[in-house]
Write a protein that binds this DNA or RNA. Structure first.
Length: 413
DNA sequence: TCTGGGGTCCTGGTACTG
DNA sequence: TCTGCAGTACCAGGACCC
C-alpha cells in the first residue's frame, strides 16, 4: 500500500513484454483495508468509504471512490471528512485484516517457498523455481491475481521484474487491479524517466535535499557523481540512490526476517499534563510490550521511551540493561525512570511510547535472576498472566494501578 | 491541514576501553 | 601515572516505510 503513486510511462516496444529473468514479483493488495472491510459491508461497494477514526486519527485506507475526492492514506481524518463528507467512515478491523492476510500469504506459499511479507497487504515472491512447473513469471503473476480474487474477493496488483525495487515500482504503476512487467533490458530507461520521489528511500526531506542539488528526476541522480550524492545526503543514502538510479538492487527475497524491536505507543485523546496518568500509560504499554516479547519467545536488552509534546516535538530516551529481559515489571521500571529523568514540570504530552530493542531468542539467552527476586518471581507471575489472558482474553489480568484506566479514558485527562 | 502506530535504518556525538 | 589514539558501544534524533 504505497503512499506515492506515479503514472506509468508509455512502453517503447510492441507485443507482450519479455519477462525472461524477471523472477521477482511484488504483490500489493488494492486499497486492502478498505476492500477487506467491504466484505463485511457489501452494500457499501462502489461508494466512498474511509477506514480510520478517532478525533486525532489519520486515514488508514480509502476506497477508490473516496480517493477520487482527494482522500489518501495517512491523511488526517478531519481533512478527509471535509474533502469527502458523503463518505462512510468505518473503524479498522485488524483481526479481519490479519485473517485475510494470512490466507493470502498461504496462497503465495503454495506457489513458491520464497515469500517475503513486507506488511499485512504486500509481499515479494521469488518464482525462479516455479517457472518450469507453472509457466513464465507473467503467467504466474496472473494466476496469483486470479486466485486471490477468487479465494478472498479482493483484487491485487503485481509488478514483475528482475529486482525487488523495480518490481515494487511496477506494482505501484499497475494499480488498481493490474499487472506490469518491466523487462530486464528496459530497467534503466524505465527508472530514469521517473521523478526522484519514486525511489525507495526518498521521502519529503530527501526530495528537498535533492532539489537543492538541482535533481528532479532519477536520470538527474544517475548522472550526478556518486561523491556529490554522498556529500549531500550521507554515505548510505547517497550510494543507495545512485545504485537505484541505475537499476542496481542486488537484494534477494528473504523469507525469514528477524524482528529488531517491539514497541507500543499511545496518543491521548487530549494532551495530558499529569505525570501520574503518563506513569500509568507507561506501565500499560510496558505490559503489552513484555507480553508480546514473551509470545514471540524473545528478550530485549535496551528499553527506550518516546514522548511527543503538544507542539509535536518528539524526544526519545533509551537505556541498556545488564541482562536482556521480557519481564513486564523490569521494562516498566526502566520506562518510568527514563520518563522521570526528563524532569518535566507538567509539560503537555500528546503521545508516549515504550519500545524494547536489541532482541535475542529467549531460549538461547541465559536468564540472570535479580538478587532481590525470589525463586518464583516476576517472570513466573508474567507467565501466569499470559496463561490467564490466553484463557479469559487480553487484559483480563492487569496491574492494580491500571484498573482505573478504562474510566480515565472515558473521562479524558 | 494538522499530523496514528508499528517498525527499520542511518547519522552524529559522546563515553568507554585497551 | 598520564596522554593520545583508534575502535566500539551507546544514545538521541531524524527520515523513511507501510
Amino acid at each position: 500500500m504505497s503512499r506515492r503513486q506515479f503514472r506509468p510511462p508509455p512502453r517503447a516496444g510492441h507485443g507482450p513484454p519479455d519477462d525472461t529473468g524477471c523472477t521477482i514479483l511484488h504483490v500489493d493488495m488494492d486499497a486492502f483495508f478498505a476492500h477487506a472491510s467491504l466484505l463485511a459491508r457489501p452494500e457499501l461497494k462502489g461508494t466512498p468509504v474511509i477506514i480510520g477514526g478517532g478525533n486525532r486519527g489519520v486515514v488508514l485506507s480509502a476506497t477508490y471512490e473516496a480517493r477520487a475526492f482527494g482522500v489518501t492514506s495517512a491523511m488526517p481524518m478531519g481533512r478527509a471528512r471535509r474533502l469527502c463528507p458523503q463518505a462512510t467512515v468505518l473503524a479498522p478491523d485488524h483481526e479481519l485484516y490479519s485473517r485475510i492476510s494470512s490466507a493470502v500469504m498461504a496462497t503465495f506459499a503454495d506457489i513458491t517457498p520464497f515469500v517475503e511479507p513486507l506488511s499485512t497487504d504486500e509481499a515479494f515472491l521469488d518464482v525462479a523455481g516455479a517457472v518450469r512447473l507453472m509457466g513464465s513469471p507473467a503467467t504466474i503473476a496472473q494466476q496469483i491475481r486470479d486466485r486471490v480474487v477468487d479465494e478472498q474477493g479482493i483484487t491485487c496488483s503485481v509488478g514483475v521484474a528482475s529486482s525487488k525495487f523495480v518490481a515494487k515500482l511496477a506494482s505501484g504503476l499497475a494499480k488498481p487491479d493490474g499487472l506490469l512487467v518491466i523487462p530486464a533490458a528496459e530497467v534503466v530507461t524505465f527508472v530514469q524517466q521517473l521523478p526522484v520521489a519514486a525511489l525507495w528511500g526518498v521521502g519529503d526531506r530527501t526530495e528537498e535535499a535533492l532539489a537543492r542539488l538541482g535533481l528532479k528526476t532519477v536520470a538527474d541522480i544517475a548522472h550526478t557523481p556518486r561523491e556529490t550524492l554522498v556529500r549531500g545526503l550521507g554515505e548510505a543514502t547517497g550510494a543507495h540512490l545512485h545504485d537505484l538510479a541505475w537499476g542496481r538492487d542486488p537484494r534477494s527475497v528473504e523469507p525469514v526476517r528477524r524482528e529488531r524491536s517491539i514497541g507500543n505507543e499511545r496518543t491521548y485523546g487530549h494532551d495530558v499534563d499529569d505525570p501520574e496518568v503518563v506513569h500509568r500509560t507507561l506501565l500499560g504499554l510496558s505490559d503489552k510490550v513484555a507480553s508480546r516479547l514473551r509470545a514471540a519467545g524473545l528478550v530485549g536488552r535496551t528499553v527506550s521511551i518516546k514522548v511527543r509534546f503538544a507542539d509535536f516535538t518528539t524526544i526519545s530516551r533509551s537505556r541498556s540493561l545488564r541482562d536482556p529481559t521480557d519481564v513486564s515489571r523490569e521494562i516498566a521500571a526502566q520506562a518510568r525512570e527514563l520518563y522521570d529523568a526528563l524532569g518535566l514540570q507538567r509539560a503537555r504530552v500528546r503521545l508516549v511510547g515504550v519500545r524494547v530493542e536489541q532482541l535475542s531468542e529467549a531460549a538461547s539467552t541465559p536468564v540472570q535472576v535479580a538478587l532481590d527476586e525470589p525463586e518464583h518471581g516476576w517472570r513466573d507471575a508474567d507467565r501466569a498472566i499470559d496463561r490467564a489472558s490466553a484463557r479469559f482474553g487480553a487484559g483480563s489480568v492487569r496491574p492494580a494501578s491500571l484498573l482505573g484506566e478504562r474510566e480515565d479514558r472515558r473521562r479524558g485527562p
